[in-house]
Design a protein around this nucleic acid. Sequence first.
DNA 1: TACCGGGCAATTTTT
DNA 2: TTGCCCGGTA
Length: 718
Amino acid sequence: MTDLLAGLNPEQLRAVTWPAKSALVLAGAGSGKTRVLTTRIAWLLSTGQIGPSGILAVTFTNKAAREMQTRLATMVPVNVRTMWIGTFHGLCNRFLRSHYRDAGLPQTFQILDSADQQAAIKRLLKSLELSDEKFPPRAVQSFINGSKEAGLRADRLPPALNLYEAKLVELYAAYDAQCRREGVVDFAELLLRSYELLSANQALRQHYCSRFSHILVDEFQDTNRLQYAWLKLLAGDGGSLFAVGDDDQSIYAFRGAEVGNMRALLNDFSVSEPVRLEQNYRSMGNILNAANALIEQNDGRLGKNLWTDAGEGEKIRLFEAYSDGEEAEFIIDEVRSLKRDGFNLSDMAVLYRSNAQSRLLEHVLVNAQIPYRIYGGLRFFERQEIKHALAYLRLIANPEDDNALLRVINVPARGIGARTVEGLQAVSREQGVTLWQAACASGGGRTAAKLGEFVLLVERMRERGRELPLAEAVSLAIDDSGLRAMYEQDKKEGEERLANLDELINAATGFMPDEPAQALTEFLTAASLEAGEHQAEAGSDALQLMTMHAAKGLEFDAVFVSGLEEGLFPHENSMNDGKGLQEERRLMYVAITRARQRLYLSSAQSRMLHGQSRYPIRSRFVDEIPAELTHDLSAKVKAPAKTNASTSASWRTAPKVGRVAADNSQGFRIGQSVEHAKFGSGVVINAEGGGEDVRLQINFAEHGVKWLDLRYAKLSAG
DNA sequence: TACCGGGCAATTTTT
DNA sequence: TTGCCCGGTA
């Protein structure tokens, strides 16, 4: 017990040993948040205040849940698998599986991931003969999810303001009906259904409320309305909620996160003051001071100041490049030099605001032969071949799953074309039956014969699959469906896809179901709820590339925050209202606080975006960092005063006036107006080279953007 | 059924 | 510039 609490700082200790009432722990970046959370659970258990079944611990990601479980297992001798530690969705799934009848769900209900949900919506639109021009599936999806996250069913929504909205509400109702028919639930539904069941069923609610006397929540600033309502319901009247979060790291408002839940908690659970964890164990002082100064610009904060006893450390390195290309080169040069100094590539990260920015970096990294790893992109269970195989498995579990049926009814091609499928859908619509039932009932004729073969195939797979161990059932689905044969034919990508399918069989082999009788359902659930790694192959030492969002929760010795330009970061879509801008600033705060020792902030004066050159000005976020904390590496040429043209627009058609283009640019400067004999008048927007060999990029009014070599071009000042 | 080309949009994302 | 989606054609 004393061991457990040893080494905690006073605030951590205060949080860990907080009495059995609600608390809000304001946990700064790198302040030992996970440690506090796990140690509190261990402390509650080992002091006998509560048994393992009395604790509910919620996270947002599977990774965080696993980490909590692993660390807890090293602290106290409990079976963490039996404890209710998991993601919101994982725990709601568990709850709904135990009470599927009360929840009005089939025992083997399947979970739709985002892509599945969108497919279901497209199908619905088609069946209602609504064009997806007028009702973009994405928009319908976000309307449905938004409503669910507000806790509202279609019949409870406020009256529609116009016909369009009324139609959306109708679609929402129809979508829910379709899901019910097919025995599937989407992500938001997991939460809403759990919430509704708990509020409607008093006995159940009382049971869980008295059982979970300690509810702990991680990343509380990311909770949405429904999640908060669910927590409140579970905590009950006298219940306690131990919430850990950081309002300054709230960067997910765009997907429904409500920072306001933090203040709401203080009020709703009568917490007088948050516990602040402000001592940082990650970064050097200059980095923290930069972060503190930056975030100070936001208002409405709960307030917190990070500090360290590790010392000031190095200054923050600024670099303003001529172009995005030069910025990339700079980063790569610095990476090389850090590597020479003994840093691992995997301890360095390049962060950017949007994924598109990785392309140029990749290009330059490939040329420089520096190994790198990008976070993002397709995850294992989202791959086409895996989704196909899973669709067959879903049909084994439940042939009424129209989504699954549609996905593979003609994969591999077996002569069931679009026309046949439309016929099936018409029958299904008219008679109110699922596609599977329609297929089973199809009469004579050639198409019916093909359908009959498919029905037979699925039935055979179901029969055999039922008796087999999971891994063999998976293998059977891949072989009997013809998927394996199909990919064996595929010269281009077949090999990799086959390897992935084998990996799926491996995953099934290693899968440990809680209830062996439900192995298949559990496996499919896990596949939906944990889409797998973000293709981050471990192993070799590689530079880490990722968006700033993806970097949350991670840390590196050296961090490059790139593309610090108005319009890009803060992003032009977010910089027009105060709320958006403040969230961007929090994102900058997150990015800065990823660095342990060294932090680079880089920007470019020209950048290729959407196939067009832009000439942005440096991000305001750079200027919000006190100059005494920084060291400008780009100050080779003294920057002139800014023109007043830069005050309104975030980017202009011409860069800052006056910067000397190159050493011997014959007096031409970026921003200067020039005349060309053939192209007419233009503005110098970029320069390259030096000495004799100088090239200028010029934006001509009549002839567009051109590179000109000063040795040949006849250019004069305009 | 499969491929080509035009049109068009283009943050951030876990479950 | 890239990548996706749709419609037209072989």
